[in-house]
Amino acid sequence: MHRITVVGGGFAGLTAAITAAEAGAKVTVYEAHRTLGGRARTAPGPYRTNEGPHALYHGGPHWSWLKRRDLIGPLAPLPPLEATRLRLRHRGTLRRTPPLAMLKLLRRGLPPAPVDVDFLTWATGIAGPEGARAAAHYSAVALFHHDPGALSAAFVHERLRRATRLPPEAHWPRGGWGGLIDRMAAHAWDLGVRVETSARVDTLPTDTPVVVATSLDAARRLLKDDTLTWTSGRTALVDLAVRTRRGDAFAVSDLDAPGWIERFTAQDRTLAPVGEQLIQGQIPVGPGETKADGVARAEHLLDLGFPGWRGRVTWRREAVAGGRTGAVDLPGTSWRDRPAVNRGDGVYLAGDQVAAPGVLCEVSFNSALTAVSSALGHVGLEPLGLEHA
């Protein structure tokens, strides 16, 4: 029997399970939580939140993979009028356009950003100190890190370009990411994948190859391997619902410090009850900062972009995500330096902090394909061809 075990039923785990089953393997997925999804899990109503702002970028390989299998489902387009309501905090006030110096970092023909220099140093040489700082802070929407300027220039610049591309790459599955996970789970079931929920794995099986598709912290504990570490972000997450009021911003990006607030019901009114708006924010916090520090900065952005929000709140939730927002690469490192997918002895890693390219969930997707390709070879099946990439 060509059997493969997958530990973790999030986006990476389901990608691995589907791909392995399509190649002819018998697959079992073990998920510790009672529901699938991992960080792509959508809370049940009436406020359908994810763990922080979520968007699906159509520029990555996962998009075509999902589309070929009819798994993307209905999308929630942003109305043109709402698209004009992106606001940027710069020098303490809201504005509609970025500083001109920042745009120098987006023009065509720039040489590739270096891996071994921090973004702020490299960008200052092109856009000056103010433009470089504004660009670094704007890129935090795709980084979840308190000091984007200190990261590898190549790493940050790719995310800055992806986050500012026109037309936008970001798309939103209607009803939240939970619908996408449900479609992936149903497809896996149709392929014969066995899914066990509320099934925490404490010891790896030795009779099948195993794809460990968990957070890196969980993988380190499971594999008892202290080398499984990589830098990530720490982010204050603020979710709230407010009564609808005309004139609210669609999103507020902080160019004075890293931070992003977005009104998700601008594109998808199914995420909150009629007459209410769902707002989600992510404010990266540094090692010496607390959740309260991040929440205070979020409230300042809310004051600017959502006047009178305090008197309109109908629901609120706060949290801190630590080490759950993907890998970030320091100067001198790239995705190739992260923990390798192949751990030897038929054990493979998948997730957003391992050695695979991409932005946000694309890392999970690419690492899942890499892990499955090796696992298929381990059980005597044909590794993945280029059509899966």
Results as ranks from 00 to 15, higher is better:
L56G: 00
R162I: 15
R234A: 09
D293S: 12
A140I: 04
G179A: 14
R34A: 04
E362C: 09
G377P: 14
R85W: 00
T290I: 07
A375D: 06
L360N: 07
A140C: 15
G9E: 01
P79R: 12
L360P: 02
L381K: 10
T229Y: 15
G326Y: 05
T5Y: 11
L166G: 13
V328H: 03
H388C: 09
R336L: 09
A375F: 00
A219L: 11
D207H: 14
T229S: 04
G131N: 07
L301S: 02
R68K: 13
P209N: 03
A185V: 00
K291W: 07
F306V: 08
T5P: 06
Q280T: 07
G385K: 12
A113F: 04
G247K: 12
L304D: 09
G131L: 12
P99A: 14
T229P: 08
G178R: 13
I18Y: 15
C361F: 15
D225S: 07
A123P: 02
G52V: 01
A16G: 03
A123Y: 08
H62S: 09
T97F: 12
E130K: 10
F306K: 06
A266R: 02
R183D: 09
A292V: 11
Q277Y: 13
T325I: 05
G344A: 05
D207V: 01
A43F: 08
G311A: 13
R95Y: 15
G259I: 02
T214H: 01
H171W: 10
A154N: 04
P46L: 08
G377V: 02
R34I: 14
R87Y: 01
G346T: 04
A219Q: 03
H137T: 04
G10D: 03
V295W: 06
H388Q: 10
E362R: 07
D303C: 05
D118S: 03
R91L: 05
G346W: 02
D190C: 14
A153V: 11
W177T: 08
G38W: 03
G233A: 01
L81C: 13
L369G: 04
W177G: 06
R297K: 09
A150R: 13
G323Y: 06
G37C: 06
P53R: 08
R96H: 13
T206C: 13
R108F: 14
D70W: 15
G288V: 12
F119D: 00
R87C: 10
